[in-house]
Design a protein around this nucleic acid. Structure first.
Lengths: 233, 233
DNA sequence: CATGGTTTTTTGCCATACAATGTGATTGTA
DNA sequence: TACAATCACATTGTATGGCAAAAAACCATG
């Protein structure tokens, strides 16, 4: 993101209060500040963030559209709870959308983007060796940014962005077993190989497989109602 | 929908003003009442529908989240325009999501749902013969309702619901060539056959193929900036 | 006809109000 | 005590009016 590819000299449109609210709420939910199932009272949120109900409610509509919060008419909002079935469904969708992105990247990406992606994977492996959960998440996120940009499908990108927030809700970051992380990187290397060969079918297959593996690892940790789930990315 | 499967005796949650607004706006955009690219002024919409700005703006956030309208900060809202590239992207996403639904239906659907789907296809073919565009659209929509319900993935269903609205914007209903409609039904029959055989891979393949064919037919009609695009479903 | 300033329109955000509904407490009663 | 009716309160849903800031439209002047 911070390299040559971004020539857009825009002043990076100022936040806009509503967007700030959405972002802060998103973060608060993703990080567990508002646990799943907890109720959200408008007045409290207003005071908490120092904004008017008008703006807050508009922001809440967006979060609601993302499926991040649930509204029961005349009763109120609560943070959506994600049961095992829903989680599986989300991973299924994610698999095909990322698979699509993979196929499109293999088809459309410029060689510059291909190089960027390779660097990104290298970085990911490097970060993995000296073990920093935050850095790993960040690197992974960068990887996806490049992949999606190269794929060039705005709709898919947008949908994955939304899903990502919901997955973060599960992944109360703890990077799971180092076992899975290592396997994950292995998978990505194979994936990258297929992309560089411009092999659409293999790219698709490996990407879907990668997400399915992640899903399996994540879901295995989920059913226990008692404790948080680990990141299996 | 109107058969035994629906035992929910709820009073079908009363509309709620905001939802009404969303629905009417959705309809207005889908039917071309507000053409793509046209600007939307809040005050006008308020007067037009007889609601307050508060409610209206909340509704607009939902439409915005659906990608149906576009907001330029401090400038205003306009109905999103769908260029050829975007349209292709939407069809790509739709293909994989429906493909996923197909696979899941083949895997999970009850035999009752399977029967219902078959009936739905029969109806579709019947409606086709006596040529009623509205009835065709309706039957098709019913077909998808059954498919998605049987697939049992709420996330995918929700995403397809959104996409559907955007596609409707293109499909200024005219049912395209009877040629394509006939082929479409043929494809559906093959698709149904795969589903009934519980063949997940074939179901996937045929479903994706079906959407890609529809996309090709639709996109072929699109590039002409001059006139509306036909339905190639 | 360009240019620079002024008016108008429109959005973005806010405070407040009030009806309807849901919720919990209190009281009345068996 | 147990239970039912009632009342008070909290919360949402919607409406109104207002004001600052940005953009657009307009206009006057060089």
């Amino acid at each position: 993101m911070s390299n040559a590819a971004s020539l857009d000299m825009r002043v990076e449109s100022l936040p806009g209060l509503r967007e700030q609210i959405v972002e802060r709420m998103r973060m608060a939910i993703a990080t567990g500040r508002f646990p799943a199932g907890s109720r959200l009272i408008e007045r409290e949120l207003c005071e908490m963030m120092g904004v008017s109900r008008t703006s807050l409610r508009e922001a809440l509509r967006e979060l609601q559209a993302d499926g991040l919060i649930t509204l029961q008419p005349n009763k109120g909002l609560s943070v959506s709870v994600v049961d095992a079935a829903t989680a599986r469904g989300i991973y299924e969708v994610r698999a095909v959308l990322e698979g699509l992105a993979a196929r499109l990247f293999a088809r459309n990406a410029t060689s510059a983007e291909m190089v960027a992606l390779r660097r990104s994977v290298d970085k990911l492996a490097e970060v993995y060796s000296n073990f920093s959960a935050d850095a790993f998440i960040l690197a992974k996120s960068e990887f996806y940014d490049i992949l999606l940009k190269g794929a060039g499908n705005a709709t898919a990108t947008e949908m994955l962005r939304r899903i990502h927030t919901r997955v973060s809700q599960l992944r109360v970051v703890s990077l799971s077993s180092a076992r899975r992380a290592e396997q994950s990187i292995q998978e990505l290397r194979g994936f990258l190989y297929a992309l560089e060969a411009r092999d659409e079918d293999a790219s698709w297959r490996l990407c879907v497989q990668h997400v399915e593996n992640a899903a399996q690892a994540a879901l295995a940790a989920l059913p226990g109602v008692d404790d948080a789930v680990a990141s299996a990315e």
